[in-house]
Computed example of a mutant assay.
Amino acid sequence: MTKAELLKEFDKLQKEKEIHIEGIHCNSNKSTIKNAIECLKCPDELLEKYLMVVSLKYENIGRTIAENGDFKRHSFNRLYVFNTARQILAN
């Protein structure tokens, strides 16, 4: 898949879910765009579990994200929780 195709899919998913993820642009590398697409495809129930994983490891960060509103719709927190939890679980 080309970078242009990945960006089209990313934009389509953002519009479908009505979520904007910051930091993903045409100058992002392919792996970053693929990761953001995976994050958008991730079900909200799984993201809730990911927040629990982050909260257990990093209590203050988890609390701050939970108090900041719906992190699943936040332009930065959704991707942060997704990536951090997967990193924790990989170890």
Rank of each mutant, 00 (worst) to 15 (best):
I65V: 07
N91D: 06
T84I: 00
F76C: 05
S75L: 06
Y50E: 10
E5C: 08
I21P: 03
H20D: 10
L47P: 09
R63P: 04
N83S: 12
N27R: 15
I37T: 05
K72N: 09
K15Y: 08
N68W: 06
I88F: 01
T84R: 04
V54D: 02
L51W: 11
A90N: 15
Q14I: 06
L79P: 01
F71G: 01
H25M: 08
N60D: 15
E67W: 08
Q87K: 07
R73W: 08
A4G: 12
E16Q: 09
Q14A: 05
F71R: 00
K15W: 09
S31F: 08
K12G: 11
I88L: 01
A36R: 06
L51R: 03
A4W: 12
I33K: 02
N77Q: 12
E18Y: 10
F10R: 10
E67G: 02
T64M: 06
N83R: 01
C39R: 02
K30P: 07
D44S: 13
F76S: 02
T32K: 07
N60Q: 14
G23W: 05
Y80F: 05
F76W: 10
L56H: 09
C39N: 09
V54L: 06
C39K: 00
D11P: 05
M52H: 11
L40S: 05
K15F: 03
L7W: 13
K72C: 02
S75Y: 10
I65L: 03
Q14R: 10
L40Y: 12
L13E: 15
K3N: 11
